[in-house]
Amino acid sequence: MSSSVEAITVLSSDGDEFKITVSAAKLSKPLNWMLEDVCFSDDCDEVPTIEVNSKTLVKVIEYCEKHAPRANSGASDSDAEELKKWDIEFMKMDVKDILFHILMAANYLHMEGLYDLACQTAADLMKGMTVSQIRKIFHIKNDFSSEEQEQLRRQHPGCSFD
């Protein structure tokens, strides 16, 4: 790999261009493969596309850039503490966005750390929610008839519906 390359350009699924540094791209296997492809082919002008929308890709790249130094070199406990705080701030977004966009992107880009973080955050946010509150956050239309709903309540005692 050529050492002169410090950042690569990628396209989001919406067609917007984004730059990601080499060290940050290493957090994702597919990105790392793209990186090697780009670096090895001298006359390649093609910009690789990542099947993640712009809004989500901005967040994913932000996560990679922040986590890259620790992932690549290892760091002290105080850094780990700071990074944990940063993760909490970073995850301050709608639970639906976390599950549907961040989690899907982390899955697609094979990013275990982000994946676990997204799952845990979503789980924490959903703790204590009733069935109707869960429908609300996911914008799910209740597709049970009132009879079915009653039956469901009888079948699931101890479950909070409202």
């Binding site: 549907f100 799952c119 979503a122 959903m126 869960i134 996911f138 799910i140 597709d143 699931h156 909070s160």
Partner: peptide, 26 residues
Amino acid sequence: LPEELLSLILSFLPTKEAVATSLSIK
């Protein structure tokens, strides 16, 4: 959501919320 992803999300949730999520849609 892909089945496997849904299962994974459900496994991260406390079981009470996992069941509630499962019962939110037919």
